[in-house]
Design a protein around this nucleic acid. Structure first.
Length: 243
DNA sequence: AAGGAACCCAACCGCAAACTT
DNA sequence: CAAGTTTGCGGTTGGGTTCCT
């Protein structure tokens, strides 16, 4: 059902994800968020102390950022609903398709727990023929009260409200605001921002900290690190310039 | 039971928008 | 403001599974 694993010319893995890769990605994002999809694969799976950089390199994900993003969004993020579609969901998809066409992401916003990819697949495999063979079907769905979709939307707002209503400008990027990816990881805006503040003070992420592995390694070689660095759990990584 | 067709869905690709430098 | 980078979206594909003959 899934593509066979393979490697491209840059050594990046393609195809089906293994459980180990899923676990690395999940663990990394739940701890640090997805601050930069392109850089993330280099650090995912590198929870060991920083002085074991060789191991870091070996244990990072050999995936492109795009692939990581897709895997997280469509499969790993906690609020993804899987399995059969309810009649209500089907009716809503038909109705939204009638209104929005192939704006799958917009449709996904109205269906809590369903991803654009999943809705798109479901449309192509289950609903397309049905809709084509009966063009009036969608109109028939109009008989369903608006409350059906409104309820689903309000559910969605409920899930997101604790985060999205309190975002400062500097955190307006997708990784912390518009996406509901992280909502379920935090039970209130307070804990969310505690985590964010925590996040920005940790290795890899602070402005003065190199953001790519190459930068990081060269900075390390040049003894650029002179202050203490800690992991979220308070573990001190090192506090002396390294030789 | 075998094999071919159809189905299904995870994942890839290309492109454009958004953002950063 | 231009160029470069990153992200997100929609279309498409690969290949495993199920169904049919």
């Amino acid at each position: 059902m899934v593509r066979a694993p393979s490697f491209d010319k840059n050594g990046l893995k393609k195809g089906a994800w293994s459980e180990e890769e899923d676990e690395k990605l999940r663990a990394y994002i739940q701890r640090y968020g997805h601050w930069n999809w392109r850089q993330l694969p280099k650090f995912a799976g590198k929870d060991e102390p920083l002085h074991t950089l060789t191991i870091f390199h070996l244990s990072g994900l050999s995936r492109c950022g795009k692939s990581c993003r897709l895997r997280w969004k469509n499969y790993l993020q906690p609020n993804v609903k899987r399995g059969n579609y309810s009649k209500q969901e089907v009716e809503l998809i038909l109705k939204l398709h009638d209104r929005l066409g192939t704006k799958w992401s917009a449709m996904a916003e109205k269906l809590p727990g369903r991803t654009d990819n999943e809705i798109k697949n479901y449309w192509h495999t289950h609903l397309k023929k049905r809709a084509e063979s009966n063009p009036k079907m969608n109109q028939a769905t109009e008989k369903f009260p608006e409350t059906a979709s409104e309820n689903m939307v309000s559910d969605n707002h409920c899930q997101q409200s604790s985060v999205s209503h309190h975002l400062p400008a500097e955190a307006s990027r997708e990784s912390f605001s518009s996406s509901n990816d992280d909502c379920s990881l935090f039970h209130s805006s307070e804990t969310f921002w505690e985590h964010i503040e925590d996040f920005w003070t940790k290795p890899f992420l602070a402005d003065h900290t190199p953001c790519s592995q190459d930068d990081f390694l060269s900075a390390l070689n040049e003894g650029e690190f002179t202050s203490s660095y800690y992991f979220c759990d308070g573990t001190e990584v090192f506090n002396q310039p390294m030789d």
